[in-house]
Simulated assay, not measured.
Amino acid sequence: MQRILLFLYSIRAFLLFIILEAIAIWLIVSYNSPQGAVFFNSSNSFTGSFLNAKDGFTSYFTLGSTNEDLAAKNAELMAKLASYTPKKDSATFELDSVLSSNYEFRSAKVINNSINLQTNQITLNKGAKDGIKEGMGVFNGEGIVGRVKGVSKNFASVISLLHTDLLISSKIKTKNEIGSTQWDGRDPQFAKLKYVPRHVEVSKGDTVVTSGYNAVFPEGLLVGTIEEVNKGTETNYLDITIKLATSFNKLTYVYLVENNMEAELDSLQEISTSINEQ
């Protein structure tokens, strides 16, 4: 303590100078309007810059939870939109019950993803305890991502669209022509649209969407756009290359869709198959 006092005593002249300078500045700012305005504007600017930097710094560490909350909210809104039923027409026509939505939506974060294999898979941070089930369709704001293959309590594995064994029932939007999207194991930006007959007029840039003909995806989800069309001679189908809408190397948050009528549809298909086999 004595050393501190001795140090302060040794710089007493400097301290007195600082105190007098502070008093002088206070007097100038307080009794001179132009100088006061400059001082307060400068201090406000400095304080605002500091607080803005502080806010940006703290916000950075909350981006993860914020994005997750937004993804969950989007899934909730999609479910509400899908279940929305327009008001009855004034002519008293009843809406058919089959027009009501059968889909539920959930959100999840991608924690592992591969794009350089022939059979790529994706891992999500949610599982059975969050309502995730095998067979659910997976997509994001850009387009189709894949289909849930396996589920544990806390995680789910997804067969990526970049998997040579996965086929997605699709259609050319302007033509309503049905086909199947399948990755050929080459470029992760492109896939093939198969089983479109050769007589169909297809143009580069045509949009390809989900057909709604299976129980996985609703109709109209974006798959990609047609990049190239060739009329081969070996088959009755066009050789169509589509540019996928989804950027698989940038996957972060995805949505999962469940068809509540899938079990009923599957049972009907099994009955139809057994009748045809007899």
Rank of each mutant, 00 (worst) to 15 (best):
T62M: 07
A245P: 06
G185P: 01
G143K: 01
N176M: 01
T210C: 06
N116R: 10
R12K: 15
V98C: 00
G212F: 06
E177N: 04
D206A: 07
T225M: 02
V98S: 14
D206N: 13
S100I: 01
L221V: 12
Y195T: 05
F190Q: 10
S180R: 07
A156F: 06
L81G: 08
T174D: 15
V208F: 05
P86Q: 04
G179N: 02
K173V: 08
G135P: 05
P218D: 04
N140A: 08
P197K: 14
N52F: 08
P188D: 09
R12D: 05
I25M: 03
K87L: 13
V216G: 04
L221C: 03
L193Y: 05
S180F: 14
K73R: 13
G150T: 15
E94P: 01
L238N: 01
T66K: 05
H199S: 14
D206G: 04
G131S: 08
S65Y: 03
L70T: 05
I28P: 01
K231M: 03
G220R: 09
D206Q: 08
T252S: 14
L244T: 06
G212K: 06
A53K: 11
Y9S: 09
G64E: 12
G224L: 03
S170V: 02
G36E: 08
L117V: 02
D184G: 12
I178Q: 03
N102K: 14
L99R: 01
N154G: 11
V38P: 00
K109Y: 01
W183N: 10
S43Y: 12
S247G: 05
T92S: 15
T210D: 07
F46L: 15
V145G: 09
S49R: 09
Q182E: 09
W183P: 07
S107C: 01
T58Q: 11
K126I: 11
I242P: 05
D130T: 01
Q118N: 15
N125P: 04
I275W: 12
A263D: 15
S45Q: 12
S100D: 04
E258K: 15
K243I: 00
R106A: 08
L162R: 08
R3W: 03
A245M: 03
D89R: 13
N176Q: 09
I144K: 06
V216H: 03
E76N: 07
K173S: 14
N176S: 12
Y255M: 10
K87M: 10
N230R: 13
S152A: 11
G232P: 07
V110R: 05
G137W: 06
F139C: 10
N113V: 09
K250Q: 13
N214H: 09
D69S: 11
A156E: 03
N74Y: 04
F7P: 00
N41R: 13
L27V: 06
E201V: 11
D130P: 01
A191C: 06
L16D: 12
N102F: 03
T225C: 00
K243F: 00
T164M: 13
G135V: 04
E227I: 00
E270T: 11
P34C: 02
L167P: 00
L161D: 06
